[in-house]
Design a binder for these strands. Structure first.
Lengths: 114, 114
DNA sequence: ATAATATATATGATTTTTCGTATATACAAG
DNA sequence: CTTGTATATACGAAAAATCATATATATTAT
């Protein structure tokens, strides 16, 4: 993982908030992120695709939903950066977490093993 | 320190290498960074100015040289991110450190207190 | 005073990134 | 099959970032 490419991924508000929300919630689908961020679906989807191409995120398709999670194969330093950023910037994420928890009709998780 | 602004500062190759070199050496002047990076002086200077404006770096003028150092007032999480990035990416910096150590006529440091 | 060195900044061009909108694909429900 | 929902992508426009070059300022040396 080239550190410049890694930080370019974090250097956009939409992408950083997506990463932090996913880090916080372990796994989120596109519609949840779209609601939490109050952004258009194509915009969120485009940024998620970029994070997937750079291998910061993995996705898992389940029915009509696509769930994104942090790539566990990221180097330790990168994972650590994401964790620390999250822990030290809770106020930054609050508005998005509030929207997420207020959201109705969130899809039911089914474990990927079933 | 807004995390998006912070990561935008790290999301450029010239700026990230400058930050990592300075982190490694505690303090470097513009001509040393210019030599270590093998980039034009205005380019290095411009990026350093940006890092100073964003308060990631502080500068100290001494004679004809301007020395840059990491701003010690950065939040702990940001300082930690810089340190971890450095420790986990030594190979990334090697070529620049080699150039720096090979450089002739490096300015003599004088402690800022004198 | 003149010349040389170190650094900063201005300017306009170029490149990169981001965006809105439209559209395509896949799945689910009826 | 049709409709609705979730997601992805294509395309051109707009915005932002970066750059090379020229030039300005400050300091040191002669």
């Amino acid at each position: 993982m080239n550190p410049v490419q890694f930080y370019k991924c974090l250097a956009d508000e939409t992408r950083l908030r997506c990463l932090m929300l996913i880090e916080h919630e372990d796994e989120l689908c596109v519609c949840e992120l779209t609601e939490a961020l109050d952004e258009s679906q194509p915009k969120v989807s485009r940024h998620l695709a970029q994070l997937r191409q750079c291998e910061l995120l993995l996705d898992r398709k389940q029915g009509q939903w696509v769930y994104y999670r942090i790539n566990p194969s990221l180097p330790d330093w990168a994972k650590s950066v994401l964790q620390q950023t999250n822990e030290a910037n809770k106020a930054f994420l609050k508005v998005n977490l509030d929207s997420l928890f207020r959201m109705g009709d969130r899809p039911n998780r089914v474990a990927s093993c079933c």
